[in-house]
């Protein structure tokens, strides 16, 4: 059974968490420095979340077909949930086709050390 019961729930939880991340003094600053526009395409339930780090406040949009992402990621929402819990290794998930990436992979690999503290934050956020 999927962890997120609906797209609305997914939007509320993961979207809410991304808002916390981009506002975080350490993580948010680094994300904005990257200027990366990244779109997460989730399945089961379906939703896309775009984080636009190229704009000053890194706005987060949903099912956004206007903003052109530099990198797009595709995964089940459950995989995303496990990733933010720190239970999924990105490189392994790609190797196992649990995640697909369109665009320059090094751009997201580079962000992995930046978001490391986010795994703890996600657990606290869900609690």
């Amino acid at each position: 059974m999927p962890h997120f019961k609906s797209s609305e729930e997914l939007k509320k939880i993961l979207g809410g968490f991304f808002n916390i991340l981009v506002s975080d003094e350490k993580i948010g600053t680094k994300l904005k420095e990257s200027k990366l526009i990244i779109k997460f395409n989730y399945r089961h339930p379906d939703l896309s979340i775009t984080v636009n780090c190229a704009l000053p406040n890194a706005p987060i949009t949903y099912n956004d077909s206007e903003t052109k992402p530099e990198v797009e990621m595709f995964m089940d929402a459950d995989t995303a949930h496990k990733f933010w819990l720190g239970e999924v290794n990105l490189v392994m998930a790609i190797a196992r086709r649990q995640m697909a990436v369109k665009g320059p992979i090094p751009r997201i690999l580079k962000l992995l050390p930046v978001i490391k503290p986010a795994y703890k934050m996600y657990k606290s956020y869900l609690a």
Partner: peptide, 8 residues
């Protein structure tokens, strides 16, 4: 556009 990246 469609395939650059991984597992696409």
């Amino acid at each position: 556009k469609d395939y650059s990246g991984a597992q696409t």
